[in-house]
C-alpha cells in the first residue's frame, strides 16, 4: 500500500517534470510544441555525453538545460516565429523538427541504446522493500521545480511580463513589453526545461533516439487538463498519473498505458478549460 502510494507520487513527479516545459510554452505562446519529445531525447543524450566524458553525473542536468536553452532560442527564431498566426501548422512544423532532431541524433550516436550514469544509484530501504533512491529524489525535484517556476512567474519582472503577455498581448505591447522577445525567452526556457527533464529521467530509462516520444502525448494531455497553471499541472499529474499507476497495478499495464490519454479526452469533453478553470 505504501509502495503503491510512493509509485503514484514518483510517477506524478516524473510527469510533472516532463510536462512543465511544454506547459510554459503553451501558456505564454499559445503554441503546442510537438518537438517536446525530441527535446527530452536531446536532454537524455546530453546526460549521456556528460557522463561518458567522465564528468560528474550531477552536471548532466545544468548541461542539458543550458544546451536546451540555446537550442530553443534558435528553433524559435527559425521555425516557430513565422508560424505564430498559424497555430495548427506550428504543431506540424514542430513535429517535423522532432523528426529532424531524431535523425541528427541517429547520425551522431547511432540507433543503439545508450546509458547515462545516475547521480545516485541504488535503493533505499523503505517499509521492508528497496525503493529506487533516484525516484524518491525526483519527488523533491518536482516540488522544487514547481516552486521555482512559481517564483519565476510571480516574483520576477520576466514573469510579470510573461503573465502580461499571456493575459493580453496587445495591452502588454502598449506598455512597452517586447512580446517577441518574451516569446523567444519563453521558448528557450521551455526547451531548457524539456532537456533538463530528459536528463532527469535518463537514470531510470535507457537513452535511444526515440526515448522522448512516448512522453510527448502524455505531457500534451496533462498540460491541457491542467488548464495551463502550475498547481493545475501538479493536480493533473497526481490524478492522471495516479490513475495510470492504479490501472497498471490492478488491471493491466497495457491499459495503464492509455489511461492518461483516455481520461484526458473525457475530462476535456466535460471541462474544456481543464481542471484549474471555471
Amino acid at each position: 500500500m505504501a509502495i503503491l502510494l510512493l509509485d503514484i507520487l514518483t510517477t506524478a513527479s516524473m510527469l510533472f517534470i516532463v510536462a512543465a516545459g511544454l506547459m510554459i510554452i503553451l501558456g505564454v505562446m499559445k503554441l503546442i510544441n510537438f518537438a517536446h519529445g525530441a527535446f527530452l531525447t536531446v536532454g537524455g543524450y546530453a546526460a549521456h555525453v556528460v557522463t561518458a566524458h567522465g564528468f560528474s553525473p550531477w552536471l548532466t542536468i545544468p548541461a542539458a538545460a543550458a544546451f536546451g536553452f540555446v537550442l530553443g532560442v534558435v528553433v524559435e527564431r527559425v521555425v516557430v516565429r513565422p508560424l505564430y498566426s498559424r497555430p495548427l501548422d506550428a504543431i506540424l512544423a514542430t513535429w517535423g523538427l522532432g523528426i529532424i532532431i531524431a535523425q541528427v541524433i541517429v547520425f551522431a550516436f547511432g540507433r543503439e541504446v545508450q546509458f547515462a550514469q545516475s547521480p545516485i544509484s541504488g535503493t533505499v530501504d523503505l517499509f521492508g522493500t528497496g525503493y529506487s533512491s533516484w525516484r524518491l529524489i525526483l519527488i523533491a525535484v518536482a516540488v522544487v521545480l514547481g516552486l521555482l517556476l512559481t517564483a519565476l512567474l510571480y516574483l520576477t519582472r520576466f514573469g510579470l511580463n510573461a503573465r502580461a503577455v499571456i493575459m493580453n498581448e496587445n495591452l502588454a505591447r502598449g506598455l512597452g513589453i517586447d512580446s517577441i522577445r518574451v516569446r523567444a525567452m519563453t521558448f528557450g526556457l521551455g526547451a531548457a526545461l524539456a532537456c533538463a527533464a530528459g536528463a532527469l529521467i535518463t537514470p531510470l530509462l535507457s537513452v535511444d533516439p526515440n526515448m522522448g516520444l512516448p512522453w510527448l502525448v502524455n505531457s500534451f494531455m496533462l498540460v491541457l487538463v491542467s488548464g495551463i497553471a502550475i498547481p493545475g499541472l501538479a493536480l493533473a499529474s497526481l490524478v492522471l498519473g495516479g490513475a495510470q499507476v492504479l490501472v497498471s497495478t490492478f488491471v493491466s499495464p497495457i491499459i495503464g498505458g492509455i489511461t492518461i490519454v483516455v481520461l484526458a479526452a473525457v475530462i476535456l469533453r466535460i471541462k474544456p478549460q481543464g481542471l484549474s478553470r471555471g
Binding site: L83, D89, L92, A93, L97, I100, A102, F107
Partner: peptide, 17 residues
C-alpha cells in the same frame, strides 16, 4: 536510410513555413 528521413523532415518543415 537516415539521410532520407532527415531530408523528409527538413523539407517538411521548410514547406510548412
Amino acid at each position: 536510410p537516415f539521410l532520407w528521413n532527415f531530408i523528409v523532415g527538413v523539407t517538411f518543415v521548410a514547406v510548412i513555413i
